[in-house]
Design a protein around this nucleic acid. Sequence first.
RNA 1: GCCGGGGUGGCGGAACUGGCAGACGCGGCAGACUUAAAAUCUGCUGGCCUCAGGCCGUGCGGGUUCGAGCCCCGCUCCCGGCACCA
Length: 879
Amino acid sequence: MAWTGAREAAARGGGEGDRMQEHYDFRRIEKKWQDDWDRRQAFEVEMDPGKPKYYCLVMFPYPSGEIHMGHCRVYTIGDVTARYKRMHGYNVLHPMGWDAFGLPAENAAIKHGKHPKDWTEANIARIKRQLHGLGIGYDWRREVTACYPDYYRWTQWLFLLMYRRGLAYRKKAPVNWCPECATVLANEQVVGGLCWRCDTPVVKKELEQWFFRITAYADRLLDDLALLEGWPERVRVMQENWIGRSHGAYIDFPLVPPAGTRPGAEARTGDARRVGATAADEGRVRVFTTRQDTLFGATYMVVAPEHPLVERAIREADPARAEELRRFRERARDLSEIDRTSDPAKEGLFTGLYCLNPGTGERIPVWTADYVLMEYGTGAVMGVPAHDQRDFEFARKYGLPVRVVIKGPDSPDLAEEMTEAYEGEGVMVDSGPFSGTPSEEGRRKVAQWLEREGLGKATTIYRLRDWLISRQRYWGAPIPIVYCDRCGVVPVPEDQLPVTLPHVVDFTPGESPLARVKEFVETTCPDCGGPARRETDTMDTFVCSSWYYLRYTSPGCEKAPFDKEAVDYWMPVDQYIGGIEHAVLHLLYSRFFTKVLHDAGMLRPVEPFANLLAQGMVTKDGAAMSKSKGNIVSPDEMAERYGADTARVFVLFAAPPEKDFEWTDAGVQGTFRFLRRVWRIVYDLRELAAKAPPGSVVPPAETAAGGGGLDDPNRALLRSAHRMVKKMTLDIDRRFNFNTAIAAAMEMLNDFYRYVENVPEAERSPAAVREALEKLVLCLAPFAPHITEELWRELGHEGSVHDERWPEWDEAYVETEEVEVAVQVNGRLRDRMVVPKGAGEEELREKALACARVGPFVEGKEVVKVVVVPDRLVNIVVR
RNA sequence: GCCGGGGUGGCGGAACUGGCAGACGCGGCAGACUUAAAAUCUGCUGGCCUCAGGCCGUGCGGGUUCGAGCCCCGCUCCCGGCACCA
């Protein structure tokens, strides 16, 4: 315990035995206290029903190669939050773990000839050391590593829970395939038609895959966003857009039998309904619309090129048209998602088929066009050119009729006069029995009518698709399913979990690497004992990350994914911190998991994360730090040159946490200067402070009664300290503005230096100096934990500064006896005056009018009015 | 196109609820200390002018108000999300 001497010396009041160094030796200090915290297991926590809990969580990282100041920023935000809450008496859970399954490990392994496990573990070890070096205080006993069997066993268990609850299913469907990653992707993982990881254009493939039925929770995921008041608006909006709920109706359009079989069918209104009601599925086309009120304006129909009706049209058409249709369909299929959706020219082709508008009973042509997507709605839309801009353009291009059925306040009466579709509300016209109905009411009425007549029904559809979780790669949790010739799809019984990922060496992609491992694939059926094959796909890593925050509450639990009592104590996460890139992905999946587990009775909360902070990026040379751009500033480099405390304070001081900021070396130096000044003020004043007992606080009455006022420098010093405490507390509590909180500490320090500069030693109050020093050190403790720990001991304390309570402020100090009041004439600042705090309006008015500088502006003018804001300003209005 | 966020000195950013715009930091300038430099400390630092003073100034144009960076109307530009979504 090398520091004992220094502490005793400080407590003795310095002198010849004083060993506090004048030099701020951050290397020595940081190492010393990091070791001390380890030894004392300072950040380990247990459930304690007697204390309020606080769960502070940073999104667990993917252990890739390089960590940089961007990571440093997130972990620092989390650590400051955790330490700050601890100082407020909370029982703080602040854990860390590893999102250790995933493609980069596999790709890096292929590239470097190393096994993904070794690569991952080496990275984990390095990042762990770096986090330690930053002084981040985690409860490492709770560390979870997603690629270890004791974790993924429960990921598999949760898959089975989904399966049991009908939420995991297998289906053949056109899915997103990334040729570069050689695997399928969930919809959320395709960004603008490109793979979210490697930016490769994604193609559609027809494959049989496993899905989670997240769409069953679409309404709750959407509606419960309203509960998330502690989330940034933009994240909620992104999820809202992603879920994309639309209210509307299905409408069945009866197909007109091939030409000649029913001549004149379209002539008699009413037939439509009979045909619609009796025809088999083959005999009608179902559309989805949000504007059923415009049904009578549907003059044609369009189906997606992939729609089964196109196949039928090809069968029934003459050879020339059939060939044309085939070509059209192939062209649409071969276009990538981006090409197809970025081309605004709406290409279409008549199929040769007709159907009946169930409203008007008229025969209308069925077209196919690439602007209709098979994936959304029913893959078929009714064409209402007068009231939908796309339909309008399509109709103009192909000479289809336009019929006005909604009359808005100033919409054209005649279709011929239209230059664009009228998409607004209005009154239904030319719509049979509905004519005269306001469009909003019309939507309700038409839906009711459709339902009554068996022609359709009101419905709600979503943009959200079910979550595709199969991955054709090696480095993931195996899907615990067995295929038996006799029993079919058989889930692996829970007592046989985990399905262990074999330690293969050939994981080159192409097909699922596990399919090549005979010992893995060949198994026996859990039901009949006969020969069976294992599922060889692994799970999307987002499955692993959808529940890790629950595992932290009871990481050793061997009977379940988590202990009920522990999860009830700790959940929900009080503060979640992470990147905005997960606004939809991870944050939506985790909300889904939480709701499923809630429904299964395993979890009380319906939402996992009460408050969310989406932190901004750290950029350098205008771009996010990344290995490929070569603009990385590493924490090691920072720790070596300036120390962890400087790195921590700088990343918080540079900008509010949710904003991006540009790294500057000069800014770091400024922060280092600040900490060195903190060090020196303690060094310079330690002997004086030692004359007052540690922890002493000056009662406000003492300086006030002693004739204090603005001119009493000791009182002014205390005021500065108390103001700092107040501002820092409010800035952190109200809005996580660490930047302005740190600025408040800097201001106080500036006052402190002015005090030292201006107040002769004989006039300095040891008690006031001690109180000011201690408040400064305490307030900086969460931000710069090492230097404050050292200084705290130098101030004569036995225990850790991190076990202390956050300081309080006293309004009696914060408030002053005198205030400066601005004097304006016609809203323009002309003078200032110092008056007693709380001075009356009349007094202020008179003093303001008497101000010397005010005179020339008032002279010879009529004073119309004097606005007085006590303690702030007086505005004299003249004419 | 729709939705969300934003535009403040040379730079990062402050400004509670409509009340002294530019806190704090960086950079710059000047001074002190030093043989000198670095470091440190102190002061100044939005622009302009006829400079003890005044005028202008928070993307642009209007409005409300005694008073607007903040509220209202109309634009504009930037960032993010969604997007032939029926």
